[in-house]
């Protein structure tokens, strides 16, 4: 498999999870170092509350990052996920809120999921059949959806979501156990892992990203595969919206601003090549955890008045570090003229 073919320098006796996991191992060590470090500075950080909060916060990013990983593996990009989330939140809120249409969640939730998949399909159609470069197409969709959301909401916020949704998002399905988001994120990650690394469909996605001409000659439909990746992303954004948005006190038009950048950052830091065809889901999931750690850790360290203000700078440095470590690892392996 071309995906793992470049890493042949280690001897065969090394277990495969290690061989294919330079990035994953590095991220694990980094996360461990951060956790140990913050634990040494202030042991209060490691409480059930903080951990719970951390997992809940990482859930939507993780769900959406799974979808965007599929898209990036096929060599495309989706920058519209943040706006999609706002739009879907507005749809969900309008349908099920007590102060709006007051429909049953059994109608509202499937409708939101369908709307998400439809937006994803629209992206897919534009990119595959319309042959619009994906960054341009999804940029246009991003702008248009943000406008549509603000228009729909008409300057006011949506409140009064059904208690069942809020409770599930905050306390879990059965009033105990992990919150819904964490369960859904784990499930999504597992399904996507199976799909990418243990199913023919996953290999086809890698193949299209790795070399479209070769994939075409092998009989794969580039159009169908890319369309699938975009549709899955839209669907997963809807899923993330459903599990995460009811946690918030109210639905605003500004939901998900900069979310697309966070997700793409996670995908890149997780070791997925932006030109497609290389990278593994495990790295992306670890990168999501690492990125979610930044804000709580900075807040906890209490650097000055608000250490949180440095979060973006740390995020940028993380991307650069990931890219540089990639280069250092592959030095001499592949040198462009």
């Amino acid at each position: 498999m071309g995906v793992r073919g470049r890493r042949t320098r280690l001897p065969r006796s090394v277990p495969s999870w290690f061989r294919s996991g330079h990035r994953e191992l590095g991220l694990c060590l980094l996360i461990a170092a951060v956790l140990v470090g913050i634990g040494m500075v202030d042991p209060r950080f490691h409480s059930t509350g903080t951990w719970n909060d951390l997992l809940v916060r990482s859930a939507p990013t993780m769900i959406v990052a799974c979808g965007v990983t599929l898209v990036v593996l096929t060599g495309e990009i989706d920058v519209s996920v943040g706006s999609q989330m706002a739009f879907l939140a507005a749809i969900l809120g309008t349908m099920v809120s007590r102060t709006e249409w007051n429909l049953s969640p059994w109608i509202g939730l499937p409708a939101t999921l369908a709307a998400g998949a439809a937006i994803g399909m629209l992206n897919g159609i534009l990119v595959t059949i319309g042959r619009v470069p994906s960054i341009v197409a999804t940029l246009g969709v991003m702008t248009a959806l943000r406008g549509a959301t603000t228009w729909m909401m008409g300057g006011s916020n949506i409140e009064g979501l059904p208690d069942a949704l809020t409770r599930a998002a905050k306390q879990g399905l059965f009033r105990a156990g992990p919150p819904l988001g964490v369960v859904v994120a784990a499930g999504t990650a597992f399904v996507c892992y199976l799909l990418l690394h243990h199913m023919p469909l996953g290999r086809h996605l890698y193949a299209v990203g790795g070399g479209r001409e070769a994939a075409r000659l092998a009989g794969l439909s580039e159009i169908r595969l890319k369309w699938f990746a975009f549709a899955v992303t839209g669907f997963l954004v809807a899923l993330a919206t459903i599990v995460d948005v009811p946690r918030l006190p109210k639905i605003e038009a500004g939901i998900g601003v900069d979310f697309e950048l966070l997700v793409i950052t996670c995908v890149v830091v997780g070791g997925v090549s932006i030109s497609g065809g290389r990278g593994r889901l495990g790295g992306v999931l670890l990168a999501v955890l690492l990125m979610t750690l930044i804000r709580p850790v900075l807040t906890f360290l209490e650097i000055g008045e608000s250490g949180e203000k440095w979060a973006k700078a740390v995020q940028g440095v993380m991307i650069l570090a990931a890219v540089l470590s990639d280069r250092a690892a592959s030095r001499g392996v592949r040198r462009e003229p």
Binding site: I77, I135, L261, I264, T265, V268, I274, S275, G304, E305, S306, K309, W310, A311, K312, A313, V314, Q315, G316, V317, I319, L320, V323, L324, D326, R327, E336
Partner: peptide
Amino acid sequence: RVRVHPLIVTLATMAAFRGVAEGISQG
């Protein structure tokens, strides 16, 4: 120097420059 796609490099510096600006000015 690093020969990485400009999209990635400028995505990183996009976050970094804004973060440094927010960090040193503290809003």
